[in-house]
């Protein structure tokens, strides 16, 4: 079976190592992966800023690029959530319905595959769960809805020998990125990010890991500004055998 890889625009441009790790992890599990070159972006940056009309060209391009594939995998819960939940702004053609139904977040997809060779990760890991992954894609149970239930991200990490997932005071508090929110409300956004980083540091995390690189882009920016260093990694990098 062929899987189409969707690499969100900012990952493609700023974090190619995450995209390469995603590709490697999928191929290591015997998946045949193609990266359709016509892809750009799902349209979320504009749509979340209120400019759904401006997002339309990108979203339509996404549909055109991916409608022929049975499975579209992306290493970003937020972008997948946008495709699944906000493509209702597009006319509900068969193609739109198909891509909405077939776009899957990486961790969720990996759990459908046979277990891969084990990769050790002997570090204390602070897990950052993206809000859209948690509350829009319903991966796991948010703390406000019940005793914190782990999602696919936690499941994959727990399988790694040597890993320690550190408990946090606030298991799933938002990091404050929020797309355009990060630049619309920089003061509150940065404050939320600092608080999140502080929670991870307080519990002795040696590396922050997430399935959402956009949160990590924001958190890494705060960590590098404030110091001391604390590496951030995408889960695909861990699964690909990379170390902080």
């Amino acid at each position: 079976m062929t899987v189409a890889l969707f690499i969100p625009c900012y990952v493609d441009q700023c974090y190619p190592q995450v995209a390469r790790a995603t590709l490697a992890v999928l191929e290591a599990r015997g998946v045949e992966v193609v990266f359709p070159m016509e892809q750009t972006c799902c349209g979320q940056p504009m749509a979340n800023a209120g400019c759904q009309d401006d997002a339309r060209a990108a979203s339509e391009r996404f549909v055109r690029t991916f409608s022929a594939y049975d499975t579209i995998v992306a290493p970003s819960g937020s972008c997948v959530a946008h495709v699944r939940h906000h493509f209702d702004q597009l006319p509900p053609t068969d193609a739109v319905r198909r891509v909405r139904a077939r776009t899957v977040e990486l961790c969720e997809y990996l759990l459908t595959l046979p277990e891969a060779p084990v990769v050790e990760f002997p570090y204390r890991v602070g897990v950052h769960v993206g809000c859209h992954t948690l509350r829009t894609l319903h991966q796991g149970t948010p703390s406000e809805l019940g005793a914190s239930g782990d999602g696919p991200l936690h499941t994959l990490l727990r399988r790694m020998p040597g890993i320690t997932l550190v408990p946090l005071d606030r298991a799933d508090e938002c990091c404050g990125f929020g797309g355009s929110f990060a630049v619309d409300e920089p003061a509150v956004s940065a404050r939320m990010g600092s608080d999140r980083v502080a929670d991870h540091r307080r519990h002795g995390a040696e590396v922050m890991v997430s399935a959402d690189m956009s949160c990590l882009m924001h958190l890494e920016g705060i960590i590098r500004r404030q110091g001391p260093p604390l590496p951030v990694m995408h889960v695909a990098q861990l699964l690909n055998g990379e170390r902080p």
């Binding site: 809000c131 509350r135 929110f181």
Partner: peptide, 9 residues
């Protein structure tokens, strides 16, 4: 409406 990260909580 923009005073939110759309975290959904």
């Amino acid at each position: 409406p923009f005073a939110s990260t759309l975290c959904g909580s």
